[in-house]
Design a protein around this nucleic acid. Sequence first.
DNA 1: CGCGTTTCCGCAAGCGCTTCCACAAGATGC
DNA 2: GCATCTTGTGGAAGCGCTTGCGGAAACGCG
Lengths: 340, 340
Amino acid sequence: MTGIKDVAERAGLSVATVSRALSGKGNVSPTSRERARAAAAELGFVLSYHASSLASGRTHNVGLVVPSVHRWFFSAVIEGASAALLEAGYDLTLYNIGENPAHRHSVFNDFLLRKRVDAVIAVSLELSEAELQQLHAMHRPIVGIGGPLPGASTIRIDDSGIARKATNHLLGLGHTQIAHITGHEAYDQDFHLPGTRRSGFEEAMNDAGCPVRPEWIVSADFTIEGAYAAARQLLASAPDRPTAVFAASDEMAIGTILAARDFGLRIPDDLSVMGIDGHDLGNVMGLTTIDQDAKGQGALAVRTLLGAITNGLVLEPADTEHPTSLVVRSSTAVPKAGAS
Amino acid sequence: MTGIKDVAERAGLSVATVSRALSGKGNVSPTSRERARAAAAELGFVLSYHASSLASGRTHNVGLVVPSVHRWFFSAVIEGASAALLEAGYDLTLYNIGENPAHRHSVFNDFLLRKRVDAVIAVSLELSEAELQQLHAMHRPIVGIGGPLPGASTIRIDDSGIARKATNHLLGLGHTQIAHITGHEAYDQDFHLPGTRRSGFEEAMNDAGCPVRPEWIVSADFTIEGAYAAARQLLASAPDRPTAVFAASDEMAIGTILAARDFGLRIPDDLSVMGIDGHDLGNVMGLTTIDQDAKGQGALAVRTLLGAITNGLVLEPADTEHPTSLVVRSSTAVPKAGAS
DNA sequence: CGCGTTTCCGCAAGCGCTTCCACAAGATGC
DNA sequence: GCATCTTGTGGAAGCGCTTGCGGAAACGCG
């Protein structure tokens, strides 16, 4: 294997100068810099990042902790973060927690402590006291996405506001009989997200003077499958059916649409449906939604961290609100005349 | 930061012995081993993997190169691989190539050569000569999934066989008017996968004495959206419509089902649809499919690589065929009497 | 032209581990 | 009884870089 020594020899420079030339730090004359570059290129030399990390303390590697890689939000964040990191020359180490508690435990008590990452992005994770402590014990910048993360900077969206905005969209079309699909309570304990969106919904309804019917608030697990089942129950009773459904996520909105079709309901004629997210399938499904730009959130997290790393300053815990946008497609419309 | 030196001091042992005790290699008396462990635990000590890698040449890190993290197959492979790696104490570095050619270039010419990974898993990537060369220049074990990878071990499924199996399922139900949704030619150049599945389809049709109608073979880009558009065209002409569609992937089958619904076609009464994959949505959509266990393939790739790493032997290029299974759900049925 | 600055560069000391080697005991063989 | 293994341990030499330090060369200024 060719090392920096070989490059130095070939370039007729010292190892130190080659190191500085290639990393761009320190004063190196343009001539030497060019010679170092040329020699490295000719030899196909690429720095050993282990050695580099060991010597410099910088790993050029960011850890990304996610609860799952399958669900839309997480894969979108990964996509956004990975592109931004690649661009910056950083590696991305993925820690996919999954369902297994043992895995979760080892990620926090082992993997993250290996001093292999310069920074950590944690996505939608509600951490225990102990986990939080381990995280901070790394003494590395941390950014949380999609959930609170005490002591760390977070990127979030205005969940309550967008729920109001979504509900107002339906109200504005003339709907008054609106159901809401929220997340299970278990999720609420973690991220408070279902509850926040739900209260946004209720506020908007109250402001409009529309009663919120408790039996029209059903919960699911944020997946298409789960919402499909929940929506089937909601839509089962023909005479007493909402004219619109606001789901707390696009995946649940899609499940609702699938369920509606099973009952022969036409979207949006018989039922308007909207969600929150900006899911890729939204386009095919004609889903009206509020786009939260998950990719952008991932990229922003990376920019935040890299800024902190290169400035060497400790990341001040701060909340950044990420913008969202209403995307109107064909799943929402004025309620059919005659529908109550 | 506490280092191995502190542990050694606390345990009353030499650094060398502590290293051996913690790694489990070399001869260490049970007493010393226990003392080392205890001291490490008390200090909350976790090895610096940089230093460890530098000294030992082993990184405890595997690189996973994927074209995208969004599409089902890739995220399933990631999920499977990540769990298996976590289990083994290995880190997973994710290289998401994406659409950007510059990213692709830097992954192969830069990132992978940083000597940070012990092995590489490449998923569904058709590599150029140069990329292949860079990959092999790492001198690390490589496993390919979902596509050929010259000079490396690969894990694959019997594409032709499962296409025949799928087609035979439809034929067995009594369908003769079967359409096929294949992948675009561009994909064929890469993975040969669409072509292989397509010929499996054609073989089965020929064997059954059913004519293959060229206008009933349409292509899409393997996504739900793409197949949705393609299927709309396919299904547009009411009088002359297939009674069944076999899509080369579940995502495309789902797109087909969505399109069929737009035309008021009932699944499976008016149209049987099946795919290949084992997509999570298959359940909700009632999709008959051939499950290829992508997670299992990811896990198998990891096991193969770890075996090679720990045995220190070069991985003999070998093809492993991963088993698949027919999953019959509600999207396929005997064709309606009266349909041609 | 001399002197203080600045720029560029090489030396060498690490970064925090692993592992080769040597060595001291205790175990074993004849 | 002595020679020979085996086992457990510590010393020390790296692994392949980065970077502080000091010297040499180039520069600016009166």
